[in-house]
Design a binder for these strands. Structure first.
Length: 876
RNA sequence: GGGCAAUUAGCUCAGUUGGUUCAGAGCACUUGGUUUACACCCAAGGGGUCAGGGGUUCGAAUCCCUUAUUGCCCACCA
């Protein structure tokens, strides 16, 4: 087969992806082989591919492809997440564009719009992953709202409810006024802001005196039901038992005493608004205060806002402040830097709000999950430092608010049959619910029509925490073959930002429902940032178009570029140059193959240089293979890739191929050729996980292959012992060749001109590699001498001195200068080594081998000084 | 406010239990190179008080203390 001169990435990529799909190589079914399983972190169903996904999924694909080559039954389960808040927001926005208000739609109407949207945009991201080369088992593609997935979610909810772990509570929750739903604590991001701190006077009832309180939210005074002081605060003894009048609404409220108040902060007087602050709520509970909620669900003021009713809280804040000023009770304002809770999704400022929500009691559920990670290391986090973060969160975990005031998601399976607080039952179906309701209420006349299902949906994470189990139907059918075979999965690759949202909860769910970990290793990737360390985002416009990158550099180039500098847990500073480097590497491999492929083979004798070089490379390959293995065991993918990069580019292309390369238009011997082909194939095997397309393409050019012989399912090279001496000897050879090249460059001797080389051998270096040195140095004759050669250019490698005689062109002054410099350096070195050796404490305390090595250094240095001195003498 | 981590060449990072191969890699840079796989290339080369200070040790990038800077996580101070 004639190979094209240029590697055409996009044609090749399409061809092989289709080929792999056609032959079902991504598909896995349980068999007798060892399974290797990864479940994808399901991207948002309506999302598009960004750099984070690229990195994340490249890593997963590398792991999966490698496992496949190693003979494991590799299964990578893809899918998408319904992402309730994000998706619902998008659908609401789209409806709004069409002039439709969500509130005018019935539940079913809205859901039908949402499904339309999902079907239209959903899965785009999965198609993009294919472009990247991801070898997911697409037959297994799952969506968190598939019927079976939803069933599992409901089943788990009912089960946890029946275990007494899920309860309904009227609590202070985080309210996102934009999405109009509650959020879990984890979904609240605290952002530092500068706000105004308002000092406001409240008149003491029946006196012409005032107390001053400080607040950042003056509009909430309309919900005040007390003013609180610290009982030990001597300044306010006179206030005890009195009442104050809230400005604007003129409500009379008591002055209460509570230790919570910090004497140092603000004025030492705290206004208490139980409906709008978690601490105030607690104080309120302790003192049986009235709760006055002044906000609507969209954070506009309700009737308690009086003449400010209907205004947004932010507007109301200014207006109330203005009114207070006009009333003469606004004492002053100050700038205050503090943290404000915002919604992770909508960025809206969170309002603490009291409402009925569903909670999951986490206290006991987390116990096995803590043990698994921190004690038993059944689940390992990479990098390990995340153990600390994990511990802190798990040990301080609070109950999980799992209800969301959204339609898009699994509807909470609670059915109300009366108006009472506890007049509800929880069941997997409405029929079951009716039965339970009849029982619980004692009213056997209840009908399905009397039941009203809770209108809220469950938190998205309440479905995704089951993902590693539910994709194998492990919740509904715990004993099925698939879950037994694939679970627990092996590795999970995701970002540290969802360590709590998702990773920790999967571990919790795994132990609760399978009594086993969901995965053994968690590889936490870093964020992809731009060169200025800014997070890549749409709004900054600094995120490159992922598909454009693939077009420009090829999928392999992008994959290599992404992995070149991305240690686990470290952010990746991305720039296109990296992809360029990846593409250049692909080009290098391509051209190396073109060279080999162009050789004419003849049955001639194998040159000595080729023989020894091949032996060396085989050792070097094994050495690299062991290193790569070690890197993979520690999830150091960048290092593994770099090892291959250097192996293939430097050792294989620059050294080995240059050595075995026949002279122009000369044939190569068959023995060498066959070995080179085998070596090339092994190179392709180890590179394949990183560069699947290029390697598969070349693989097919190397020799005709049946589909069963495709590279994607080839056998990974086996680690064997290797000759380390050969490797270190060759390092010396490289130094000698470099020495020759340096002299050629310094003296402007063209590589085409042959030169002679003499060696003054003080070290009995093996002459095995002489043929290699001759070839790479273009040496006409090589000889060993016992004395310094006069009138020659020299260089030294270890304690050997090399001479290149050259007629008349020696600049004696220059040579003397050069040798003197080297002598001076070596003498200095010797002095420091001898200093060490004459230190008794060093000789007595240091391990034997360290002392021995110092002695060898001393001997080498002395030998070198001798040769330098005699060379200098002969020059003079 | 509490905790965790980082700081090594212009950039991105390795450097495992202190000691042979400890000051490294890739990129970038400088210089030279065009008939014979690749200029997306080849060859040679320059470049670092290992953030600052102190300590332990025969010996410290590595262990301890301290200062500074940066990043991340957690936390209800109005």
């Amino acid at each position: 087969m004639e190979i094209p001169t240029k590697y055409n990435a996009s044609n090749v990529e399409t061809k092989w992806y289709e080929y792999w799909m056609e032959h079902n190589y991504f598909h896995s079914t349980p068999d007798e082989r060892e399974p290797y399983t990864i479940v994808i972190p399901p991207p948002n169903v309506t999302g598009v591919l960004h750099m984070g996904h690229m990195l994340n999924n490249t890593i997963q694909d590398v792991l999966v492809r490698r496992a496949r080559l190693q003979g494991k039954n590799a299964c990578w389960v893809p899918g998408t997440d319904h992402a309730s808040i994000a998706t619902e927001a998008k659908v609401v926005a789209k409806l709004k564009d069409q002039g439709i208000d969500k509130n005018d739609l019935t539940r079913d109407e809205f859901l039908s719009h949402a499904w339309d949207w999902t079907n239209e945009y959903g899965g785009v991201i999965l198609e993009q992953l294919k472009k990247l080369g991801c070898s997911c088992d697409w037959d297994r593609t799952k969506f968190t709202m598939d019927d079976d997935m939803s069933e599992a979610v409901i089943k788990v909810f009912v089960d946890l409810f029946n275990k007494g772990l899920i309860y309904r509570g009227y609590r202070m929750v985080n309210w996102d006024p934009e999405a109009k739903t509650t959020l879990s604590d984890e979904e609240v991001i605290h952002v530092e802001r500068t706000d105004k701190l308002y000092y406001i006077n409240y008149q003491i009832e029946g006196e012409n005196n005032f107390v001053t309180i400080a607040t950042t939210r003056p509009e909430t005074i309309l919900g005040d039901t007390a003013v609180c002081i610290n009982p030990n605060d001597e300044r306010f003894i006179a206030l005890k038992g009195k009442k104050v009048i809230v400005p604007i609404c003129n409500r009379v409220i008591p002055i209460i005493e509570d230790d919570y108040v910090d004497v140092e902060f603000g004025t030492g007087c705290l206004k208490v608004t139980p409906a709008h602050d978690i601490n105030d709520k607690e104080i309120g509970d302790r003192h049986q205060l009235e709760v006055i909620d002044i906000l609507n669900e969209d954070a506009t003021l309700n009737s308690y806002g009086l003449h400010h009713q209907g205004k947004d809280r932010v507007v109301a804040r200014k207006d109330v402040a203005k009114e207070l000023d006009e009333l003469g009770v606004l004492v002053k304002t100050e700038e205050l830097i503090h943290k404000v809770g915002t919604s992770e999704r909508t960025k809206a400022v969170i309002e603490p709000r009291l409402s009925d929500q569903w909670f999951l009691n986490m206290k006991d559920l987390v116990k096995p999950a803590i043990k698994a990670v921190l004690e038993d290391e059944d689940v390992k986090l990479f990098p390990k430092r995340f153990n600390n973060t994990y511990r802190h969160w798990m040990e301080n975990i609070r109950d999980w608010n799992i209800s969301r005031q959204l339609l898009w998601g699994q509807q909470i399976p609670a059915y109300f049959y009366g108006d009472g607080k506890d007049d509800f039952v929880v069941a997997e179906s409405k029929d079951d619910a009716l039965m339970l309701a009849k029982e619980k209420s004692g009213n056997s006349n209840l009908t399905l029509n009397d039941l009203t299902q809770d209108k809220d949906a469950l938190d998205t994470w309440f479905s995704s925490w089951l993902w590693p189990m539910s994709v194998f139907d492990g919740i509904r059918n715990p004993e099925n073959e698939e879950i037994k075979y694939y679970y627990p999965t092996n590795d999970l690759v995701t970002g540290p930002d969802i360590l709590f949202f998702w990773v920790a909860r999967m571990i919790i769910a795994g132990y609760e429902y399978k009594d086993e970990k969901p995965f053994s290793n968690v590889y936490l990737t870093g964020l992809v940032r731009d060169k200025q360390r800014r997070k890549m985002s749409k709004s900054l416009g600094n995120s490159p178009d992922a598909l454009k990158l693939i077009e420009d550099y090829g999928a392999d180039g992008v994959r290599v570029g992404l992995l070149l500098s991305s240690a686990a847990g470290n952010d990746l500073m991305f720039e296109e140059d990296l992809c360029q480097q990846g593409k250049a590497f692909a080009n290098k491999i391509w051209n190396a193959f073109r060279l080999v492929q162009g050789w004419e083979i003849a049955d001639i004798e194998q040159p000595e240089s080729s023989h020894i070089a091949l032996k060396w490379y085989e050792a070097k390959f094994q050495n690299a293979l062991a290193e790569i293995e070690d890197h993979f065991s520690k999830f150091r993918l960048s290092d593994a890739l770099m090892t291959m990069y250097k192996l293939v580019w430097d050792d294989f292309a620059s050294w080995l191929l240059e050595i075995v390369k026949p002279a122009y238009q000369q044939p190569i011997d068959r023995t060498t050729y066959n070995k080179i082909i085998t070596i090339f194939e092994n190179n392709l095997k180890i590179l394949h996980p990183f560069m699947p397309f290029l390697t598969e393409e070349i693989w097919q050019y190397v020799s005709e292959r049946t589909p069963e012989e495709a590279l994607i399912v080839a056998k990974y090279p086996i680690i064997e012992g290797y000759d380390t001496q050969l490797i270190s000897d060759f390092e010396t050879v490289k130094d000698v060749v470099s020495g020759i090249r340096t002299i050629r460059k310094e003296k402007n001797i063209s590589f085409k001109d042959t030169i002679e080389l003499s060696v003054l051998n003080n070290e009995n270096l093996s002459s095995t590699f002489d043929a290699v040195i001759s070839k790479l140095g273009n040496i006409s004759s090589m000889s060993s001498v016992t004395e310094t050669v006069e009138g020659a250019l020299t260089f030294r490698v270890q304690s050997n001195e090399y001479f290149i005689p050259i007629s008349g062109a020696i600049n004696v002054e220059e040579e003397i200068e050069k040798l003197s410099q080297e002598l001076k350096y070596t003498e200095g070195f010797l002095k420091s080594v001898q200093g060490k050796l004459s230190n008794e404490r060093f000789v007595n305390n240091a391990p034997e081998q360290v002392v021995a090595s110092e002695k060898k250094k001393e001997a080498d240095a002395m030998a070198k000084i001798d040769t330098l001195k005699s060379s200098l003498a002969s020059l003079k």
